[in-house]
């Protein structure tokens, strides 16, 4: 199957850079912009999602209060953080080659990884055991959802039944899974269970 979403670009053929055209800085610059934008959006998303106050050890009460009422915007903006710059990245990847391509390719992933690190820190630092319990359950549901979809999709790809999808979409799925987890928590709460 060809021509499907992302299928034609699987296994990027990096084009050599022609110094005469002096375009090698453009993709680098483009990636730096993507990185800075990701970092900014991720930082905001992260505060929103975890109630973590950048300047304080403990989350400010107002941030925590806001955080607890942001569903599903937190989950949605988490997904948007990943999906937005991903398209911009495609062009830059085609113009770079060699080790710098690896560095440039990994650069936009760092803020996303940062989100996961911060979520981990939030779980460690959250002193309220009930809220920690609720978030852990959300994260477990998100992880189970992501792994299940990714596994099923991989086998469907083997049979050429679905187009190829880049692996970083797992992060988007995970944030969508957090939304599902929040729904599950609300449902359990409405049923009178934890």
């Amino acid at each position: 199957m060809t021509g499907g979403f992302g299928r034609g670009k699987a296994g990027h053929q990096f084009r050599p850079i022609d110094p005469a055209t002096c375009t090698q800085f453009r993709p680098c610059f483009s990636n730096v912009i993507v990185f800075v934008r990701l970092a900014a959006v991720s930082g905001f998303q992260f505060s929103l999602n975890t109630g973590f106050h950048v300047t304080a050890r403990r989350p400010a009460a107002s941030w925590v209060k806001m955080n607890r009422s942001t569903f599903p915007s937190g989950e949605l903006s988490g997904g948007a953080t990943v999906i937005g710059p991903a398209y911009e990245l495609e062009e830059a990847m085609n113009l770079l080659s060699g080790p710098i391509a690896y560095v440039a390719a990994v650069l936009p992933a760092l803020p996303i990884i940062g989100i996961f690190v911060v979520i981990g820190r939030y779980l460690v630092e959250e002193t309220d055991e009930y809220l920690r319990d609720q978030f852990v359950r959300k994260a477990l549901i998100a992880s189970g959802f992501t792994l299940s979809v990714a596994t099923a999709w991989g086998f469907l790809e083997n049979f050429d039944l679905v187009p190829h999808v880049y692996a970083y979409y797992a992060a988007i799925l995970w944030f969508a899974g957090l939304g599902l987890g929040a729904c599950f928590n609300k449902f359990q709460s409405a049923r009178g269970e934890a």
Partner: peptide, 10 residues
């Protein structure tokens, strides 16, 4: 020193 949600859940 917990959230109101915690008290409600307990």
């Amino acid at each position: 020193e917990v959230s109101r949600q915690s008290v409600n859940a307990i």
